[in-house]
Amino acid sequence: MAVVTYRDALNQALREEMQRDPDVFLMGEEVGVYQGAYKVSRGLLEEFGPMRVVDTPITELGFAGVGVGAAMVGLRPVIEFMTWNFALLAIDQLVNSAAKMRYMSAGQIGVPAVFRGPGGAALQLAAQHSQAFESFYAHIPGLKVVTPATPADAKGLLKSAIRDDDPVVFMEGEMLYNLKGEVPDGEHVVPLGRADVKRAGRDVTIVCHSKTVAVALKAAETLAKEEVDAEVLDLRTIRPLDTAALLESVAKTHRCVVAEEGWPFAGVGAQVVDTIQREAFDELDAPVLRVTGADVPMPYNKQLERAAKVDAPKVVAAARSVLYRD
């Protein structure tokens, strides 16, 4: 197995899918000549030409709509948002157009498009550039929301997303692009809607996704020193949520902490907690706790930013609490 970065894993997925299916094309700001704002599309313009690697004006609403329209007539666009912060300008196209077309037309018209780009906070980018919007999109029936945490998942999930006949919101992490990891050689497809146990454990389940997976793994190491055996469950896909995996893990550990980068109110964790309390009520030995980003716009100051972000000590503290160890 080759060790590649998350960025290159995504690049591989794009390249392989564009080679496999001529209907797949990439569109977005700086994806072509510039080779991608984060170099995810490096080399694709040269290989596939400007009709399939399309640089757009800075018009998120416009090119998101173009993607939806192209998908409505059968193409498989991959629409890159430079970041999901900018995609707010296009949210109408995702929510009102992409998510609803199949339903409004009683199944006649689908939107097999992927909307992808980095989400969440990087470092000191301040309020407008440091937002995790998973729960916005996961709220919408008709959309799928995918949040890979590792290079292998990034590649496998992007390939699945491109092949999927529904609109997929694919959220990457700017801080993850340089993450290295083993990626299986050859055809590697990870199905949507399947969570993954990144670390097996008996005592407490830490539910996480995207960047919080690394945080949870680090927290699990700390907990291990306290003889707490934490299970790290990477949701990978927020919608559809892998309820079965969630319940299986909680039935094993009886305790659960949900870590997410986004804000607490109506966040992904809220849905996870709801699912657990409804479906696994009799398995719980403690209330499920959530660890989220602070309920504030992201500050610029480094110390304040650190305080606002989810980190391993916060996850460890929550885990101790659900274990009644604090």
Binding site: M51, G67, A70, A71, S97
Partner: peptide, 19 residues
Amino acid sequence: GIVGAHIPLSTGMAFAIKY
């Protein structure tokens, strides 16, 4: 149903035709 929002969709269809 959203005023103006379908105009980019049509552009996308035109793009698909050219594609």
